[in-house]
Every structure is written in structure tokens, then in C-alpha cells.
Design a protein around this nucleic acid. Structure first.
Lengths: 156, 156
DNA sequence: ATAACACGGTTGACGTGTCAACCACAAGAT
DNA sequence: ATCTTGTGGTTGACACGTCAACCGTGTTAT
């Protein structure tokens, strides 16, 4: 029979880890949103549109690259469309929908990118020691989903 | 003039870190919610009520211990009250509100606790090497808010 | 006494996430 | 021809978070 209860020490580890993430991630997102009005999701969408699609992507591809389901993306795009960051257009070739970044979306992204970089460096990278990099890498490897449907990489 | 842009490697570190957290944390929360119907917030509230208040706490103290603002807690308690997990009662002594765990809340907590422990061990602790503990501890120390208004520790 | 403020809490509006149901349409299977 | 199945996407309902405004009641300052 395995032991179940966590020791005080184990609980502290868990809480430190959870707390560190929420603090750091919250600071990065806050720096971005306060300066640009973009949320984490907004940035992810816009960044992928230019990185992987030269400004446009089919909705399902975008969802896959974000690791989002179609419903979540649909709701989010509706809000982004309302703010003029993207627009949707029925694809001519197939029966999908093209998501296209607007000029407003592009300038929002251009404005946000250096702010996000600076924030990630300040709140995260500058706080890491060399051995932390290895810990992060190993933990990511050990917990990755086997069937690598991993969302493509793009900060934040 | 400082460099601003992140290298590919730095972006990968960031994304691995973010991805690991979201995967692991998501698995823990999902294990709990699927087996007990409690959310992360529900568990935190119930656990603190018994750990720090022997079943009841003033609302503001509860909010402080969760690191939540009063509005967030108020909304959350309204939902929890509707499900019969807690009840609110005007304090006799001062002009605050007592949050009191119900028997349903207590049994939900009792049911959830071992599940949460098992999930944290399986998805998180078992994936850590010894040196990871030190990384986690150091990073938490380096990023803690100076004025230690830290939320009290209780998983998840 | 009244004005100013702080404290404890509620409320409404809105952005975000999740789930299940739905719709349109194409491609096979019967 | 109809029936199922799969794909791509939308919608509605509801839980969760955040922000700002508000309310009642004490405390303090004038």
C-alpha cells in the first residue's frame, strides 16, 4: 500500500512551484496588457498568424497551433474581430475559414513584441541560474504528452 | 543599450516552463474535479476553512489567505453557497461575515484530499529530480514579493 | 455636528474557458 | 437514393476572474 498523504515539505514544494509560476506569468501578462491592451490569447493568435501563416491561417490550423479547441478559438476570434484585430473570410479553395490579421492587429503585435520580450527577460530569464535551465528542460521532457500534438512554440 | 529580442533558445525555455506548468497543473485539477466536482478554488476555500479556522473564517481573512480580492471571493462564495458547500453568517462580535463549512463541504473536502495528494504526487513530485527541488526553492525565493503578504500554503 | 475616510462586503459588466449541442456540407456505405 | 460518418465551425449556457462602482457602518478630523 502506497503512502498517500503529502508531507509538509512536499506541500511547500508544490506551493512554491505554483506560486512562482503564477507570480512570474502574471507579471509578464500584466506588463503586456497594461501597455498594449492585448491579452495572452490575443498575442498568441496574432503572433502565430504572422509566424506560421504570413498573416493568415485556417481556423483549425490556428487552433491546433495554440493547443485550443475550436470552440474556444471561435469565441476568442469573435471578440478579437469586434476589436478589429483580425477578420474572418470564407476560404475560396476549401470549406474552411481564413483568419487574417488586420493592420491594427499587426501594429498591436509589433507594439507588444518587445514589451513581452523585455518582460520575459526581466521577470523570468534573469531569475534563472544555469542549473534551472536543465531542470526546466528535463521536467518538460518528462511530462510531455507522448503523442506529440504539442502546441507550437510562441511566447507568451 | 540592452538587447531586447529573445533568442530561439530563450523562447524555448519560456515555452517549456509554461507548458510544463499548464500540463501538470491541469492534470492535477482535472483529476480532482472529475472525481469530486470541486474546482481548485473550491478546494482552497474548504481546506483553509478547516486548516486555519476550524471550519469557519471571517471572509476577509479567507480572502487574504487565498491571495484573492474580496470581490473574487464574494462571487466564488455565492456559487459555493448555492451548491451547499459553505454558508455565510453575520458575525455577532464584529461587523464581518463568517464563512462556515457545511457537512456537505466537509465531506467534499475529505473526499478530495487524498485524490489531490495522489495527483500531486503522480503528476508532479514523482517527476522531480533532487536538483529540481533546489531550483524550485531558489526561484520562489527570488521572485517572492518583498512585503511578504504571501498567501498561506495549502494545496492545490 | 458634519465631513472625510477606512473597512467589509456586494453587485454588475464584461473578458475568458469549457462543455455539449447544433449546423452545413462532403464522402462513403447500404 | 438514403443513411451514416467526419470535418469545420458556431452557438448558448454556465463557471471563473477582474475591475470599478456602490453600500453601510464605524472612526477620525475639523
Amino acid at each position: 500500500m502506497d503512502k498517500i498523504e503529502l508531507t509538509e515539505e512536499e506541500i511547500r514544494i508544490w506551493n512554491m512551484w505554483k506560486g512562482s509560476f503564477k507570480r512570474i506569468f502574471g507579471r509578464v501578462v500584466k506588463d503586456m496588457s497594461e501597455h498594449t491592451g492585448l491579452s495572452e490569447g490575443d498575442f498568441g493568435v496574432l503572433d502565430r498568424l504572422v509566424q506560421f501563416g504570413d498573416g493568415k491561417l485556417r481556423q483549425q490550423e490556428l487552433a491546433d497551433s495554440m493547443g485550443w479547441d475550436k470552440s474556444r478559438l471561435s469565441h476568442h476570434l469573435t471578440r478579437m474581430e469586434k476589436r478589429g484585430l483580425v477578420r474572418r473570410k470564407q476560404s475560396d479553395t476549401d470549406r474552411g475559414v481564413q483568419v487574417i490579421i488586420t493592420s491594427a492587429g499587426k501594429s498591436g503585435l509589433d507594439e507588444a513584441t518587445p514589451i513581452v520580450s523585455k518582460a520575459i527577460r526581466k521577470h523570468f530569464l534573469d531569475q534563472l541560474a544555469d542549473q534551472d535551465i536543465e531542470s526546466i528542460t528535463k521536467l518538460a521532457e518528462r511530462t510531455k504528452t507522448s503523442s506529440s500534438l504539442s502546441s507550437k512554440d510562441s511566447p507568451p
